[in-house]
Amino acid sequence: MTSNLYYIKRPSTLKENAPLLIMCHGYGSDENDLFSFASELPEELFIISLRAPYAMQPYGNAWYAINFDAEKGKWSDDEQAKQSVDFISEFIDYACKTYAVNPDSLTLLGFSQGTILSYAVALTYPKKVRNVVALSGYINEAIIPDSIEEKDVAHLNFFCSHGTVDQVIPVDWARKTPVFLNALDVNHVYKEYPVGHGVAPQNFYDLKDWLKQYI
């Protein structure tokens, strides 16, 4: 079995049944971006950072196209996004078969576009995911199932955060997330920080403390 996505990894200190953390970067970035967090995260985590499948010019990668056409306004290629959801789902299967990890302890950590995908993977393939760390993103209902059964997502845990002055993804979009998760009775934390489209130091400390509880 081969991987459908390029990735880099940091092995766990555990020899077997390691909790797995898969990172999904934002639009125009690459696998090295979020991987800079790895040295600060618990040593027992087996960490994999993915590179999104679509190369951009002159550099960077995307999980799906975003068109900034002035006439149409900003719009996302939802079909391409759904394809990337499947790519990540298939990668989870690959990683769990390839490495000595615990398939019942998988965390997705995303930023921006990577967060949108992480939400979608967890809500589309909930049996494959346990936790989601969702930084500076939102739930795009166009790329998740029309109906979600509460019993299918009852085990999921979400840490969601957003900057109050985010100029890329409005904080109002993120504020719909806890409403959505409350309706499904899903365990979650939602926090805001006085920053733009990025991860404040306090945000990082909070997500680290949260992770220690759930891995």
Rank of each mutant, 00 (worst) to 15 (best):
Y27F: 15
F87I: 03
T164F: 00
A122I: 12
R175Y: 01
V132M: 04
V153H: 05
I144A: 12
P201K: 01
E149I: 14
D185G: 03
H155G: 09
S12G: 02
P19K: 10
I92K: 09
K127N: 11
H197F: 01
V195E: 08
M56D: 07
A65D: 14
N157F: 12
N32P: 04
S105Y: 03
I143P: 00
V129W: 06
L181F: 07
N140W: 10
M56G: 09
L156N: 03
S118G: 12
V129C: 04
E192G: 02
Y125A: 11
S147D: 10
M56L: 15
D185Q: 13
T98P: 04
A70H: 10
V132K: 02
P11T: 04
D93H: 12
E31N: 06
F159H: 06
Y190M: 07
S39P: 00
L14R: 11
Y193V: 08
T124K: 09
D78R: 13
H197V: 02
L21K: 05
G137P: 05
N61A: 07
A154M: 08
G28V: 04
P126N: 11
S161A: 15
Y27S: 02
K15F: 10
A183M: 09
I116T: 09
Y190Q: 03
I48V: 14
Y64H: 14
D209F: 08
N203S: 06
L123K: 05
A95R: 02
F158Q: 01
Q213W: 03
H25D: 06
H197S: 00
G60Q: 04
Y64A: 10
A100Q: 13
Y7V: 03
I8G: 04
H162T: 02
A81L: 13
K72N: 11
K97A: 13
F204T: 00
L21T: 03
N203E: 10
L184A: 03
N102Q: 04
Y94P: 05
K97I: 05
S136W: 05
D166K: 06
S161H: 02
M56I: 09
D30M: 00
G163I: 03
G137N: 06
N182V: 03
Y6I: 11
Y54F: 08
G196K: 07
Q202Y: 03
K82S: 12
S147H: 14
V85L: 10
V133R: 07
V121W: 02
R130H: 14
Y54P: 01
F37K: 01
P178Y: 12
G196Y: 04
Q202A: 06
K208Y: 05
S36M: 12
L45P: 00
E44M: 09
P103C: 07
P126K: 09
K191T: 04
L109S: 03
Y205I: 07
M1Q: 08
V133I: 15
R10Q: 13
K97R: 13
R130A: 13
K82M: 15
T107C: 15
S39K: 15
F46R: 00
Y94E: 06
N17Q: 10
I148Q: 11
M23W: 05
W173V: 05
